[in-house]
């Protein structure tokens, strides 16, 4: 709202402000509850959760729905009580940048291509693409159908869309972030594909795929762990859990979950 208020007066600005105000109003109204529509992939997600034991005690707790604001998300499958555990993601399905160390020769190849300066989010993006490319029948390749083709990140905006926010700090930040990501990709590829052709087939690690994976991390990564030790914190991708309010436009009037 603050960024939008600072934009120059225009029809777009007024429309954006009205949409944001309406969204805020819905959060404040008790009768503004959006129960969403059935999602076409609801059965597939149910099967995924059952197959990978994501529901505690085998009881169905969540259902995939399509919400008017925020799109695809998770709803309670039945009345749930405070304290109920609704989702448990096993360690084998969690993806963090540490997964990269399980590939022989990758640490050396990464270091040769990009030094030790790679951001953890870039490393996690690589881990995601590797996981999908490595095992076509694996859980992450299977889970891809629930991930958006175009995650809601400003990095995907066309310059025409960015220009609507001209005169805000956002334009410079988005441009710089895209440029830094392009440089990271250019440092890694084709170097990694030449060094480890079996692991990095070029088609699976194009700029387009790389940007997609990075924006998945950006919009769906969860920062977990660490406790009192910030250096022990890490970003993980957790299937199904990432559907809990992934969208920046989702209503937040129901703050009901914590990660433990």
């Amino acid at each position: 709202l603050r960024l939008c208020s600072k934009a120059p007066h225009s029809a777009t600005r007024e429309a954006n402000l009205a949409a944001l105000a309406a969204s805020r109003q819905r959060l404040l109204q008790a009768d503004g509850e959006d129960l969403g529509q059935e999602d076409e992939l609801a059965d597939e997600l149910r099967a995924f959760c059952a197959r990978h034991a994501l529901w505690p005690h085998g009881t169905e707790t969540l259902v995939l729905r399509h919400f008017r604001v925020g799109g695809r998300g998770l709803a309670a499958a039945a009345d749930l009580s405070a304290g109920d555990t609704v989702l448990a993601v096993p360690e084998s399905l969690l993806l963090s940048s540490e997964r990269l160390s399980s590939y022989d020769g990758l640490a050396a190849a990464l270091s040769a291509a990009a030094g030790d300066s790679l951001h953890d989010d870039v490393r996690l993006s690589l881990a995601l693409l590797l996981e999908i490319a490595r095992d076509q029948a694996g859980a992450w390749a299977e889970y891809c159908r629930f991930l958006p083709e175009r995650p809601p990140s400003a990095l995907h905006w066309a310059s025409r869309q960015l220009q609507r926010l001209a005169h805000t700090p956002l334009v410079g930040r988005v441009t710089a972030a895209r440029e830094a990501l392009r440089e990271a990709h250019a440092a890694l590829f084709p170097a990694l594909s030449l060094a480890l052709p079996q692991l990095f087939p070029p088609a699976s690690f194009s700029w387009r795929r790389f940007l997609w994976a990075y924006t998945v991390v950006q919009t769906r990564g969860l920062v977990v762990g660490g406790g009192a030790e910030p250096r022990a914190r890490r970003t993980v991708l957790a299937p199904v859990a990432d559907l809990l309010n992934y969208s920046p436009t989702s209503p937040l009037a129901w703050p009901s979950l914590e990660a433990a």
Binding site: E33, D34, L35, G36, P56, L62, R65, F67, G70, G73, L74, A75, A76, A77, A78, D79, L80, S81, A82, G83, D84, T85, V86, L87, A88, V89, P90, E91, L94, S96, L222, V224, G225, V236, A238, A241, L244, N245, S250, P251, L252, W254, P255, S256, L257, E258, A259, A260
Partner: peptide
């Protein structure tokens, strides 16, 4: 181990969307 469990902070009626609380 790094398994993640998600627990409700408040009751949620059937059909209502769930959100992570940061």
């Amino acid at each position: 181990t790094l398994a993640l469990t998600f627990r409700l902070l408040s009751a949620v009626p059937a059909g209502r969307q769930l959100c992570l609380y940061y």
